[in-house]
Design a protein around this nucleic acid. Sequence first.
DNA 1: CGCTGGATTGACACCATTCAATGCCCGTGG
DNA 2: CCACGGGCATTGAATGGTGTCAATCCAGCG
Lengths: 238, 238
Amino acid sequence: LPATPLVDKLESIFSLTDEERGAIHGLPFEVREAKPGEALFKEGDQPSSCGLVLHGIVCRFKILDEGRRQIMMFHTRGDIPNLESLHIPVMDHNVGALCPSIIAFVPLSVLRSLTTEFPRIAAAFWRDTLIDAAVLRTWLVNIGCKSAYARIAHLLCELIVRARVVGLGREGFDHLPTQEEIGDALGLSNVHVNRTMRQLREDGLIVTQGPRLTVLDWAKLQAAGEFDPGYLHLEKAF
Amino acid sequence: LPATPLVDKLESIFSLTDEERGAIHGLPFEVREAKPGEALFKEGDQPSSCGLVLHGIVCRFKILDEGRRQIMMFHTRGDIPNLESLHIPVMDHNVGALCPSIIAFVPLSVLRSLTTEFPRIAAAFWRDTLIDAAVLRTWLVNIGCKSAYARIAHLLCELIVRARVVGLGREGFDHLPTQEEIGDALGLSNVHVNRTMRQLREDGLIVTQGPRLTVLDWAKLQAAGEFDPGYLHLEKAF
DNA sequence: CGCTGGATTGACACCATTCAATGCCCGTGG
DNA sequence: CCACGGGCATTGAATGGTGTCAATCCAGCG
């Protein structure tokens, strides 16, 4: 069933009643595949649906006049990148796939009736957007105050913890964004990302093999990034 | 009545019914004055109330190990900085006053019943937190991709537009944060903020007299900061 | 009147960017 | 099967935007 990742995510916060679970599984999904680089929503769009990520990696980003790109968040299985469209009609940024991904689209109207009929689901959605904001604040601290070394370490920590939460690997990550994408997320040049990741490898914190990342020393990586998972507001420890 | 700024803010989005307006004005506020630098909520706190800014300027920030501070948002009249506490029990950042400010505190429990009883108010609150997130994304772009000159121009534009919205001045701003605070918000040193603001003055974009800011050339300032007010999702143009 | 916090300015160091070239892996087509 | 091409990773050298340190200035205020 397409809605399973969403149900899993909600169940990680509170137990759904049979009625709630049934309502979610009954949502009319239109499942689509997205190619790398493909845009799901563009700045200025007035979406008529929300996209639920079933597989792959999707990100939100803006493009500036001079062509510079800022990635503002990565989304994986179970996330609804444009959930905000429920209350904000026009997109102020872009949403795109980074690798081949599968997305399930649900009409806004249907999602709206779901939230009015099931207040606990509405609350969970609201909470989810609040956690997105908490992540944004943390990214702001990351970019605003930390060295390249710490920024990258922090991002890697976040990616790994969030992958753990949805059950994709424990001490690693299989879909590491490219170094250029990491740079665009952290306000660094791809060149400097490369140099700094080499440093992380030489220091024995991580190993990389293409898009596969393995953490060798979690404690050191966490310390290097001043990573405290509190901002993710997880129910269980990961 | 203490709730007036909140009612004004909501009325700028949609028309309140008499019942809704009455319910808001009937909220049990505890009004308190906050001195500059005073903390309203601290990281790790589990607030039992939300703070509504009646007067002054309040900001959210985090402090890193090495003592560096990142300011993540400025709040003025009508804002509820920790509205997220409705659904996220523990604070992941600090909230503090920058200048002498007046805050009205409302118990979380009361605010929760207000939202369950009046779904349109709940929706407006949710929407408000979503706009906060949009502002955060814009700050991320600002810090991640732009020069010091553009960053400062952008921040000044935002401060002025938001001041206009709540009816505090049109082409200026009376409570400009200190250069150190601006630096902490933009990921710049106070020294460099100073140099860059001098440049803005020499270019004829702004004038400053202490905490008073006057814009001389709005078009140029907006262009310099690549400022597009769309992300504020205002109902009317400002 | 001296104190204090903020604004201002100069000199110097450095982290990160830019530009450019090279290497590597892999899918595609001849 | 091999040659080619494209995307990504890697590396070097030179430039420059910002940070750091430190001194000075200024206005408000007790």
